[in-house]
């Protein structure tokens, strides 16, 4: 995607101080490009450190390739940058481990996170990877809110949670697929255990 065609994510020009008016270009793992203000990037500790280390000038930003974020797809990254632009300039909460941690979900965030679970989990993962503290807080709270009041059966259905038995069976199947002898070895081990042996070897 060319620089000219890269989508600009919800930028409120008036809110950006003059000296911070630099836009970085990022590329998702599916080659979608985003232009994000320097101020918005500050919400992400990871990206902020990265751009500081790169020391790009305005010209570099335009002339050099977009900074690749290889672990995050375009759909997720778009949400991340929308969030960062909306919350740019806001203080980053410091997690001092104090209890209780009170997190309110602002209206904008609630609307942004009206997405399917798959995408919501990708957003959580991205917020953690990019170290965006407040986005991680609100997205985790959102999932917790959705889980509240649900029975174990409902939780299993909504979050595709296997029971312990299903989990064990899946693990065994995966092991067998990887190493067909694994089952044999395991059975032999179990047999020896039954016979009272203390050690397999």
């Amino acid at each position: 995607m060319s620089v000219e065609n890269a989508p600009v994510v919800d930028v409120d020009e008036a809110a950006i101080p003059v000296e911070k008016k630099m836009y970085y270009r990022f590329e998702s793992n599916d080659k979608k490009e985003f232009r994000v203000s320097e101020l918005a990037i500050q919400q992400s500790e990871t990206l902020n450190r990265l751009v500081e280390a790169m020391g790009y000038t305005s010209e570099d930003v335009e002339n050099k390739p977009a900074i690749a974020i290889e672990n995050i797809d375009g759909k997720t990254l778009k949400l991340v940058f929308q969030w960062c632009e909306h919350h740019k300039g806001e203080a980053i909460p410091v997690d001092d481990g104090s209890v209780p941690k009170i997190v309110e979900i602002p209206e904008f965030d609630a609307k942004l996170m009206d997405i399917d679970n798959g995408l919501l989990f990708k957003l959580i993962w991205a917020a953690d990877y990019l170290n965006i503290v407040q986005l991680l807080n609100v997205s985790c709270k959102k999932v917790a809110n959705m889980a509240q009041g649900k029975t174990p059966a409902q939780l299993r259905r909504v979050y595709l949670l296997p029971s312990d038995e299903e989990d064990e069976a899946a693990k065994r199947a995966a092991q067998e697929a990887q190493d067909p002898r694994a089952r044999e070895v395991e059975e032999e081990f179990e047999e020896r255990k039954r016979q009272g042996g203390n050690s397999f070897f």
Binding site: G118, F121, W125, K141, A147, K150
Partner: peptide, 26 residues
């Protein structure tokens, strides 16, 4: 798609921390 259990334990722990006691019991 990414599922809840695909998230690392620290993130699931963080999600669970917002749940009230009866849901944690659940």
């Amino acid at each position: 798609s990414l599922e809840l259990l695909d998230l690392p334990n620290e993130m699931i722990h963080s999600i669970v921390s917002y749940l009230p006691i009866p849901d944690k019991f659940n």
